[in-house]
Design a protein around this nucleic acid. Structure first.
Lengths: 222, 222
DNA sequence: CGTCCCTCTTGAACACGTTCAAAACGAGGA
DNA sequence: TCCTCGTTTTGAACGTGTTCAAGAGGGACG
């Protein structure tokens, strides 16, 4: 098993250089030639490790997700209120992602392509997606919220979708410090929590049931 | 005022050729050189009329929107049930957009870029956006639905956002004839209608109010 | 040492979107 | 007819992401 260490070193040197240049100059203005030159390798070598420029940010995406998972777990530890837990998780994401919004935008645009392996719905992203949904499950299960059991099963996936919506808003958010995204979270989370509570009311039951069924059917063969 | 007719002719020849090639081979696999050759002009000439390849689809986008407006108005004429009107408008969009889903995907990916003039939130798209929101206003006003007056004001904009969500789903929908998108519409529209009806209940009032306020605040300076 | 083989590396070459200086065109006047 | 000037058209050239045939490096085995 030769050169494994060396190989890993080259790979990480390339991705590190790429991330530095992306944050410095933006995604579009950073060329593959500049990345290769900065890392002291040839263009072809970069392509030996990463199948495309887009692919270079996959590792970065994973890094953000990993950081978020850790930080979010620490933040919700001990907290039992559902709304507080959910809000902490989302604000935590905004904190961590803030430095990268400039080129993150370009990244998330690429991710919007259904054919791209970077799409949050793609097979290649399933590991990261499962981890995020798992975090939402922790948010629900670690809280004292009372829910229709059917809804409880689907809720983590729904919350993940909600998070994707927040990210979509964030991508378009040009306010200082992403104030608007924070406002969206701070005010929509309590709303969601109240809706979840209301869902246990008699009048609301059939609607709640249908939502759960619809989501389940849409998720089939996906 | 010389050559105006000739100029317009060249312009439309280019866009027509582009649309034909896009639908035949997809957006990515259609080169600017092929478009120019197909239209019998030089590459530079295409760029004289359209500032970029992306820009070529703006006209196409407008065309779909115009078709949808006309067809949707015809379909909701005489119908007074809110859910039926809304559903008709959305299914109508799916019908009209169906032939273009293959390259439409690429288009909507470009549109997801907040910097792009093709973004549905951009200034360049404001005319089309206003028209779409106006259609949703017709959906509401022409129906016999009873609503909190505050909600009634915001509802068209909310419904437009909902439509954008449906489009986002449609872009990722790989089922035959976009069956899944149709299912989403057919089952989520009645849900929305029931929620709107429920919103008049006492318990629901404060939640409904807060949603309206949140949307209004988020829309500020946008 | 020589030979094979697999991993890693190279950089020229390709295809594409885009730009631009120059040319062609055509109407209106001298 | 010839000149002028704005509009339209050209195609070579540039910078980009990506590919690929060729080579370098180094361990395993005879």
């Amino acid at each position: 098993m030769p050169h494994v260490a060396k190989s890993e070193e080259t790979r990480s040197l390339i991705v590190t250089t790429a991330m530095r240049l992306f944050t410095e100059n933006g995604y579009d203005r950073t060329t593959m030639r500049a990345i290769a030159a900065g890392a002291g390798v040839s263009v072809g070598n970069a392509y030996y490790y990463f199948s495309s420029k887009e692919q270079l940010i996959q590792g970065f995406y994973d890094e953000i997700a990993r950081q978020h998972l850790d930080a979010a777990r620490a933040r919700i530890d001990g907290e039992t209120a559902f709304a507080a837990r959910l809000q902490a998780v989302l604000l935590c994401w905004l904190d961590i992602a803030e430095p990268y919004q400039r080129f993150g935008t370009q990244f998330f645009v690429n991710a919007a392509d259904p054919e791209s392996p970077l799409s949050p719905f793609s097979d290649d992203s399933s590991a990261a997606r499962e981890a995020s949904i798992g975090l939402m499950r922790e948010v629900v299960d670690g809280s004292d919220v009372k829910l229709d059991p059917e809804l409880r099963d689907q809720l983590p996936e729904l919350l993940w979708l909600y998070q994707m919506g927040v990210v979509l808003f964030w991508v378009h958010d040009r306010s200082a410090g992403q104030k608007r995204s924070r406002m969206l979270v701070e005010r929509s989370v309590p709303l969601l929590a109240r809706l979840a509570a209301l869902s246990r009311l008699r009048v609301f039951r059939p609607v709640s049931r249908e939502i759960v069924d619809l989501i389940r059917d849409l998720a089939k063969k996906d």
